[in-house]
Design a protein around this nucleic acid. Structure first.
Lengths: 353, 353
DNA sequence: GCGAGTTTGTCAACCGGTTGCCAAATGATG
DNA sequence: CATCATTTGGCAACCGGTTGACAAACTCGC
């Protein structure tokens, strides 16, 4: 029976009436070879006779062929896509991470899916669940998930977390001590003897780390330090803390992040507190806009773009080991550094008393 | 011949040794039905006997089944993914758009792919080409592509452009006149008689529109207006324009966007020019941080989150018509409004002469 | 000129769903 | 109880690539 390839014929005829994108079958027909040969020619250069390969390439160009990533992903399981999950995409701390990640992914020919959990662990879990099957790996930048949840996810797909330490999961971490030491030294040099730390969310690993680093550094310089918080990591979280800061009698306050620091700065100025002479203020991250304030904000800069880049590059090295010769150094902590601007200065004699 | 289902058997046995995610075949086996029945039960509730459907649901739950979006996308062509393309993800104007788009997409169960062209039309074209087959539609937020290129893309997939007017392509546009009228009226009221507009990139549709609106509004209030530019839409672009602004002798300057306005503000203060008494400065967009400056920036706010939301919602209505009853009103322009802060004020007598 | 070793390209299964078609089962009706 | 209409669910093709196995064609040495 001439059961040749009825369905194939049907397909060709359907295809020939244009419309949808060209497939390797179209190329195969045009070049007079088998579809699998086309597939090899396109994805494994050298596997095929040069002459044939050229013919196929020509046909592909003529049809303006683009490989269909979805069709390719199905049998291979490789989607050439990475997922980036952030808690709040409008938080300027995120921008740098997103940019670095996007750039590193695009450079490697990968697509980046960005999802925002809007500070909700539940939303985050849902989004991850949905995206999981169609990505090769995930970057969790400011996860609101519990450690165990993250570990479960990491057991299914390669995961990199940023600013979080988790056993068995690669973390991109800042060298908190470095910047904090610089900051504390800077404040000590200016003549401050007492600091307050306005902390961020209770669950924030970063906030704890910053506090611990301050707690270790301050006594070494003969300074006292108190913690005020926890608070929400926003402008409002900063403004809300001002009373307690003032009540504490310190001459310098370090906020969990720049947003809170700016909130503090604003409300301090509103209340007629001179910055920095009556109260020095410093933040963390050096976000966009932190030099817009008057006085501009002293802050401990974190290399956010590099964090995003490194996270993605590490993920790529795990996803496609051959891709990059130079392995990403995940172990090394990201260097943080103090950026001195106008919001810190010598305390007035008697300030803070 | 008992050619029963040799391959299926092989598959099952492979699958049974765990590892990969459960499939509808696993569910089918567990529930004792055909895979196609499982597919129907899961994607067309009601098509199947209630009793059977329940059994399948139970099996799915037991196996913790998640539909594989890639496998689903292949035969249907629907990926449940949208693409968002921006020129510069660190530009604060973008943040709102991204957030609005992400939220609207997530709410509809869609995944958002974000790609950054880094101001390069070529990169943008490449990224679009790569992502195109795996998205159901695209939002171009700050495209650097030529009109004809965009039209070609729009012919292949649903496209929505933001802040750009293009025949045959849906555009989400701001009501520029509204905010500009308010701004010009505000300046006139303060006593200004001459304005300069520091324009953005030559190719920017928005910059042209803003200039046209100013050009129309200023004379109505008996004010003169000059254009200075084009310039790059960044802080540096603003600072670079200061000499020409001063030379023009105006008492008020309106910058293409907030970044340029802040650049102008900074360099003006550095040069000892009092703001606003010697020079009033205003911007556009009301980006994050535009109220951090001293004085805070007067600006024409654009509802960016809504722009992103509306873009995606419109796209969704085209992609899955049944999804939403209420159609998105794309025609309506997004209302812009003046936000008065400290950077505009009465000109000093003799200022600008 | 012939057998061994390589290269090249074809066959067909497969990834995990979706869906048109149809037969069996069920239910309604006379 | 027979007949016809309606559900219900199975079969198999299909989406567009990838890839292991293998046969045909080609190369080479003796």
């Amino acid at each position: 029976m001439s059961d040749q390839q009825p369905e194939r014929v049907a397909r060709e005829s359907k295809r020939s009436r244009g419309g949808s994108a060209p497939t390797i079958y179209d190329i195969a027909k045009l070049a007079g070879v088998n579809p699998s040969t086309v597939s090899r020619a396109l994805s494994q250069p050298g596997r095929i006779n040069v002459k044939t390969e050229e013919r196929i390439q020509a046909a592909a160009k003529e049809l303006n062929y683009r490989v269909n990533p979805i069709a390719r992903a199905l049998p291979t399981g490789r989607t050439n896509t990475l997922g980036l999950f952030v808690a709040d995409i409008t938080n300027p701390v995120i921008f740098g991470i997103v940019r670095g990640a996007e750039r590193a992914a695009a450079d490697a020919g990968y697509t980046l899916v960005v999802a925002e959990s809007q500070e909700s662990g539940e939303r985050e879990a849902t989004a991850i669940e949905r995206v999981m099957p169609s990505v090769d790996g995930l970057v969790l930048a400011t996860s609101r998930l519990a450690d165990t949840q993250i570990k479960q996810i990491a057991a299914r797909k390669p995961v990199v977390v940023i600013n979080r330490e988790l056993e068995g999961v690669t973390g991109i971490l800042p060298d908190v001590e470095r910047g904090v030491d610089q900051l504390v030294a800077h404040l000590a040099e200016l003549g401050h003897r007492s600091i307050a730390y306005v902390s961020g969310p209770e669950t924030s690993w970063v906030s704890r780390r910053r506090w611990e680093a301050l707690l270790a550094a301050a006594p070494k310089r003969g300074m006292t330090i108190v913690e005020i918080g926890p608070g929400v990591p926003t402008l409002d979280g900063g403004t809300a803390a001002i009373s307690r800061v003032i009540a504490s009698g310190v001459t310098a306050v370090v906020a969990f992040n720049d947003l809170m620091a700016i909130g503090l700065l604003r409300v301090a100025l509103e209340r007629g507190i001179a910055v920095p002479s009556q109260l020095s203020i410093a933040g963390f991250d050096d976000i966009f806009g932190s030099d817009f304030t008057a006085p501009a904000l002293t802050t401990v800069r974190a290399p956010l773009i590099e964090a995003g880049e490194r996270a993605v590059r590490h993920l790529l090295s795990r996803v496609s080991p051959q891709s990059d010769d130079r392995r990403v150094d995940v172990e090394a902590l990201l260097p943080t550094e103090l950026v001195v601007r106008g919001s810190t200065g010598h305390p007035l004699p008697g300030a803070g008393d």
